[in-house]
Amino acid sequence: MSTTPRALVAMDVAAGLALAVATGMVFFYAPLERVMGAVQKVFYFHVAAGWVGMLGFGLAAVAGIAYLVTRRSRWDLLGVAAVEIGLVFTLINVVTGMIWARPVWNTWWTWDPRLTTATIMELVYVAYLMLRQGIEDPERRARFGAVYAIVGFLSVPLTFFSIRIFRTIHPVVLGGGDPTVTGAFAMTPRMTQTLMVSLVAFSLLFMALLWHRLRLGELGERVEQLRLKLQS
């Protein structure tokens, strides 16, 4: 029986506390935005979730490169863990983006570069999981996953730029012009502080979740090996 390492417990506590502080700041410390009202407060966790999503996908690409170089299965486990967490937080990012867009731009969905790129990114990594599901041999699954994580992550900035050029030539009609103008606001010091604390809290949460997911992956690998040993 392996017990949870001390450092992991400490990290869980730290992440939980930081998240509580950030939530408290969002609810009680951050000022109410003058035009948009309360919905603007979604922004803090929206940005933080987007940050964690990018962190996860970027880490998966790095783990992919590391796997192809070293061929150690631990890197593959890290890659899947990072992608899975990235997917959860990118989904949060997209959904909160839509919730913010509804009262501010008067529509659930706009083809705004960031929102669109985030959604396409989500699809890339859903495809990543589907690719892995289709391959039984663990070694090959790891190799293909690594390749796709690298290719997918490279395409993200290109997608962003292509949509952004697209939008500057064809301005968004909805919301009366450039979406960065409608719903833009000046950050007060309190807002900046809240955003920073949210970013730190989500980063800690990411690390704690990643560690847990990595342990889950290791356990899965052990079970898989036991099963293979029994079958032979």
Binding site: L131, I135, F144, Y148, G152, T159
Partner: peptide
């Protein structure tokens, strides 16, 4: 991507799912 997709169990459906999200910038 096709050389990976054909080696998977779900190879008939996998290629467009893998390829399209990555290739969007080219198409745009």
């Amino acid at each position: 991507l096709a050389s990976m997709a054909v080696q998977a169990r779900t190879r008939d459906i996998l290629l467009p799912i893998l390829l399209f999200p990555v290739v969007i910038p080219v198409v745009v």
